[in-house]
Design a protein around this nucleic acid. Structure first.
Lengths: 200, 200
DNA sequence: GGATGTGATGCCAGTGACTGACATCAGCGT
DNA sequence: ACGCTGATGTCAGTCACTGGCATCACATCC
């Protein structure tokens, strides 16, 4: 047995999630979290750069999976297709855990600071995907736009996945979102439009 | 003449921009900014919610202009076209001020906290555009994706505008970015692809 | 023209996020 | 036994941000 209880980082993550859920993010101090995890406040800041970061541990894993997946996509795949295929695979990280994801999302949605952090995680992800696409030969702007479009598809699908009851499969929702994105961005001359509805 | 020097808010904005440029964002305290503006620290926080916000005064104006412009677009315009037309108009806020924008962008790019704030401004903008599109009769997902695509186009165009030397017209760069976005998201069967280049 | 209200500011004390410096101590290799 | 290392604790300090209260030029009302 080690000198300290194992998995300090995991204990801090769990303690933080509990407290943020119970009292709210800004009524929880870093010292509170550390105390519940049986650690000193200082130790919290050795594991996490700040109070927000403790909620975003998974972002790194998600990004690694996506980048690897894009890198391994067949050379014949178009940029957007490679990105979308990668996002379809991430369903494994989500399917079956909708309730936990919903709790976490409720906390984030209640605090602008947390939304900011979530956004920069998405932006970092987008940049990583852009980079992966460029290594496959895409031009800078082609890669950037395909990555942005892919992330937009992901967010649209993720939101519907959170709302789906009974829970739907993540990959299916990604597919649906791609179809919609293509409809929205289709070149004007081939696009079929519905009549504009009356003002509310 | 009033009791106080006029335009306290503007003085704080200018003082902050100067100091952030001279010493960097995190080596500038709120008290420093207030002192240069001839005010008390407390007054700084009466005008701006936090140290970051002082750099984003224009975001509100930009959003108002865009929302108004989307609302006034002809009913026959497709969602993405309405958004893109709105962004073309914002060129007036940019053209001729490239150097100031570059200085500001350098500060933001050097600090994650500022990038986070910039991202949430863009997300707020995207939400406002989504809302404006829905009022024109677009479905939730159609509006959301068109707004996201529009913002992606804006960011792509803005970056090129910052880099353009001699400065190019913002609206032209928006047009170019739209063309590229459409190429990237074109449905697979109609899309023409270039051969994949060799790895770097 | 004096009382009264109001808005922008100053001043002060407090909380809490985060940092730097230094101490501690189990386990590990030598 | 000895020293090294890595994870932790402890403490003091800075600074972002907040709440409360005082001030005072100006406008408004009677």
């Amino acid at each position: 047995m080690g000198r300290w209880e194992p998995d300090a980082k995991g204990r801090l993550e769990r303690a933080a999630a509990e407290l943020y859920g119970e009292r709210g993010f800004d009524k929880t101090t870093a010292a509170d979290i550390a105390a519940r995890a049986g650690l000193a406040e200082r130790t919290f800041f050795r594991h996490f750069a700040d109070k927000r970061e403790v909620l975003f541990g998974r972002a790194g894993q998600l990004q690694d999976l996506l980048v690897r997946s894009v890198a391994e996509a067949p050379a014949s795949a178009a940029p957007l297709d490679a990105v979308v295929a990668a996002f379809r695979l991430t369903g494994e990280m989500f399917d079956g855990r909708a309730e936990l994801s919903r709790q976490r999302q409720r906390i984030i949605d209640a605090h602008q600071e947390l939304q900011e952090r979530e956004l920069i995680k998405m932006a970092t992800l987008s940049a990583a995907l852009t980079d992966a696409l460029r290594r496959r030969g895409a031009s800078a702007s082609e890669a950037g736009l395909a990555a942005s479009a892919g992330v937009a598809v992901f967010l649209s699908a993720f939101q519907r996945w959170l709302e789906s009851d009974p829970p739907r499969l993540f990959a299916e929702l990604v597919d649906e979102a791609v179809v919609e994105l293509r409809a929205v961005t289709a070149a004007p001359r081939t696009r079929r439009r519905r009549p504009v509805a009356a003002r509310s």
